[in-house]
Every structure is written in C-alpha cells, then in structure tokens.
C-alpha cells in the first residue's frame, strides 16, 4: 500500500527512507524529497525524478535507464548505477560518485559535476555541452567523441583520459591536468589553455587555435 502511494508520487517526504531493491520503475517521484535515502539496487527505469532532492542519497547499482534525473544529487553515491540514456541535463551532481556507472548516451548538458568522481567511466559520445566539470576527476575516462563545447574543466583531472575526436571548442581547460591524455583529432579551438598540463599527451590532428 505504502509502496503504491510512493510510486504514484503521493508521498513527498522520503528523506532518509530505505527503498533499497524496490521496483520504482515508471514511478512519478518529481519534486519528492529523497535526501539521504537509500536506493541501492532499486529499479528506477523511466522514473520521473525531475526536481527531486537526492542530496547525499545512495543509489549504488541503481537501474536508472531513461530516467528523468534533472534533480539535486549533491554528493550522491551513484557507483555502478546504470544511467544509460538518462536525462541529467542541468542536474546538480557536485561531488557525486559516479565510478563504474554506465553513462551511454546519458544527457549531461549543463550538468553541475564539479568535484565529481568520474574516474575511468565511459562517456564516449556523450552530450556534455556547457557542463560544469571544475575539479572533477576524469582520469582514465573515455571521452572519445564527447561533446564538451563550452564545458568548464578548470582544474579537472584528465590524466590518461581518452579525448579522441572530442569537441572541446570554447571549453575552459585552465589548470587542467591532461598528462598522457589522448587528444587525437580533438578540437580545442577557442579553448582556454592557461596552465594546462599536456605532458606526453597525444596531439596529432588536434586543433589548437585561438578564435
């Protein structure tokens, strides 16, 4: 009974709730307060979480395929979560942990990912236009073909990252660490490269020009 009400979005206060392994697929959880809740292993397939508060929530291994996650996820734990084709545009993911999460075709344009842990994740061909990635840890991440135009990568860690064919036009890479990164055919036209570390980075076919 309680779960039915939750699925229908009738319960707005779920801060700290334990919803681990629950089936919440297609649920309407828009603007629900789930701060600090436990959703480990839950299914939120195609759920609507727009405007929800998930600050500090634990979403480890959560199934979030095609979910609307235009939500507050400050410091949330999304380790091993499946975010395939989820909509995270403009979401607040500051300091979130996204290690080993699946991010194929996840929409992250304008998302706030500063200080997020994205070590080793695959963001190949992902829309990250205008995303705030300041100080994010993207070491070893696969960003090949990703759209990072106007993204803010100030101070981000991109060592050993794969940025092959990535679109970094007008991105801010000031102080970013790209040691050993692969920038083959990446486009950095108009990018800010003040104090950017490019030690042993591959720069073949890379556009490195001012506008």
């Amino acid at each position: 009974m309680e779960m039915d009400a939750i699925r229908a979005g009738k319960v707005k206060q779920l801060a700290g709730a334990d919803l681990a392994d629950e089936d919440l697929s297609h649920a309407d959880l828009s603007r629900v307060n789930l701060a600090g809740a436990t959703l480990n292993g839950a299914s939120l397939h195609r759920a609507n979480l727009s405007g929800a508060i998930l600050d500090g929530a634990s979403l480890m291994g959560c199934q979030l395929v095609e979910a609307n996650l235009r939500a507050n996820l400050l410091g949330a734990n999304l380790m091993q979560a499946d975010l395939t084709e989820a909509d995270l545009r403009g979401a607040n993911l500051r300091g979130a942990n996204l290690m080993q999460s699946r991010l194929a075709h996840t929409a992250l344009a304008g998302a706030f990912l500063s200080g997020a842990n994205l070590m080793g994740v695959s963001l190949s061909g992902v829309d990250l236009r205008g995303a705030d990635l300041r100080g994010a840890n993207l070491s070893g991440a696969n960003l090949s073909g990703a759209n990072l135009t106007q993204a803010d990568l100030q101070g981000a860690i991109l060592s050993e990252a794969n940025l092959e064919e990535a679109d970094l036009r007008d991105a801010n890479l000031a102080g970013a660490n790209l040691t050993g990164a692969n920038l083959l055919c990446a486009d950095l036209e108009g990018a800010n490269l003040n104090g950017t570390t490019l030690v042993s980075a591959c720069l073949k076919g890379t556009v490195l020009e001012k506008t």
């Binding site: 490269l193 003040n194 104090g195 950017t196 570390t197 030690v199 042993s200 001012k210």
Partner: peptide, 10 residues
C-alpha cells in the same frame, strides 16, 4: 589566450 601550456617532456 594561450599563455602557459606545459609541454615539458614531449
């Protein structure tokens, strides 16, 4: 805009 790119050890 490009003032100090560190490409120390190529």
């Amino acid at each position: 805009m490009i003032r100090s790119i560190k490409i120390a050890h190529v």
